[in-house]
């Protein structure tokens, strides 16, 4: 079973480009990434596209397909009607390198600003113990593939371009994974409030909607972190207490 489908694919770079039309043969079971590969092999050998595992595990092939931010390797072609036009564009929150490839290096720079895991001292028997129920919530955050679809849809970054004052949902998840780690002993609350700009998030949950790993970014990561910031900086009782006793921390 195969049929021809009509694709519009962005060709160009940061200085400009166009949606170019292609007719591609599509076989049963194919995903969007297969179609891009077929285009490369038959019609457009220099079409740029980033990919790796082709099984939804590495988070490389992020793109916007008919306006929806998705991993192309996990989006089946039979989701579309046979006569539907399929438009594939690069992520919009980052500069375009070429075609479907964007420059996501900003994310790696942000990650460096987060103080690393700092373990508590070991138990007297030389081990650490962590119970499964204690690590369940951290393991949710550690599922993150770094596909940056959440960064792409976050309006703080996408529409307002606040890349210099807000780390974005991906790194709220990273921060949550560290802050809620049962063995971690570092304090990142000041960073969250200041450099990470957690106050910019107004919990529209767009990030949660697009996460291919179904991480509940807003509810489970960002809101609890906001609460930690609020407890430290905005709790009136604590402020009063500090005012009376002096700033001893």
């Amino acid at each position: 079973m195969s049929n021809k489908m009509h694709l519009k694919v962005f060709r160009g770079d940061n200085s400009g480009g166009e949606l170019r039309d292609y007719q591609v043969e599509v076989d049963e079971g194919m995903v969007v990434l297969d179609v891009v590969h077929r285009l490369q092999a038959t019609q457009a050998p220099d079409l740029s596209c980033r990919w790796n595992c082709k099984a939804g595990k590495c988070g490389s092939c992020s793109a916007e397909v008919n306006g929806k931010p998705r991993l192309m390797c996990m989006m089946r072609m039979d989701l579309f009607k046979p006569d539907e036009i399929i438009t594939i564009q690069p992520l919009q929150a980052f500069p375009i390198v070429r075609d479907l490839v964007t420059d996501v290096s900003w994310n790696f720079e942000v990650n460096k600003k987060i103080p690393p895991f700092k373990p508590k001292p070991k138990n007297p028997d030389g081990t650490w113990r962590m119970m499964q129920y204690e690590v369940d919530r951290v393991q949710e955050f550690r599922k993150c593939l770094e596909c940056y679809l959440c960064q792409n849809v976050c309006h703080v970054l996408r529409n307002h371009g606040k890349h210099d004052v807000f780390f974005g949902p991906r790194f709220m998840v990273r921060l949550a994974g560290l802050e809620m780690h049962p063995l971690d002993d570092a304090d990142r609350v000041k960073l969250m409030r200041e450099a990470a700009g957690i106050g910019y998030c107004n919990i529209t949950k767009c990030c949660t909607e697009v996460c291919p790993e179904d991480i509940r970014i807003t509810d489970n990561a960002i809101i609890p972190l906001k609460e930690r910031v609020a407890d430290r900086y905005y709790d009136p009782l604590a402020m009063l207490f500090r005012a009376i006793r002096g700033k001893n921390r």
Partner: peptide, 12 residues
């Protein structure tokens, strides 16, 4: 042979 330029060219 390869067509296109040197920037992110998978065929190359």
């Amino acid at each position: 042979s390869v067509s296109g330029g040197r920037v992110y060219n998978p065929g190359w």
